[in-house]
Write a protein that binds this DNA or RNA. Sequence first.
DNA 1: GCCAACGTTGGC
DNA 2: GCCAACGTTGGC
Length: 157
Amino acid sequence: MKYWLMKSEAESFSIDDLAHAPRKTTCWDGVRNYQARNMLRDEMKRGDLAFFYHSGGDLPGIAGIVEIVRDAYPDHTAFDPDDHHFDAKSDPENPRWYMVDVKLVDKLPRVISLRELKQYAGDKLAGFQLLARGNRLSVMPVSAAQWKFINSLSKAK
DNA sequence: GCCAACGTTGGC
DNA sequence: GCCAACGTTGGC
């Protein structure tokens, strides 16, 4: 079992949107970065847990926890010319982009802001990819120790 | 294979 | 809205 962090722009799809989705489940479409895709397609498995990270907006940070409930399968939004995530270079015979399904496990009692996480960059969260300079990956691994520490933050204060 | 131009991400 | 940091594209 692995841990992950997945980013979503709060204004386009937030933790509350997921909470109101049927069965609190959604397909995680729109990943269009090879590094993120490779992790999502090759390493992410059903049963893994991930932090739901809000990017943009007033308070960028970790908003909740989701479970991967379906292994990677072709991202069909890449095949639809009317879709914002359309990519002519991906076709059903040879899909370029993949997605997983995620289900809401918990909305955290409070958002753990990026600002707060940065306070531990030289300590408990040393090496955390989210805090790496210039990091823009939308899917990234989280170590068990990092996972545990961040969860403890959500319960404190 | 190099690299300039361009587009995107995402914090601020 | 600004801009740094990337990733991608395409000419050569």
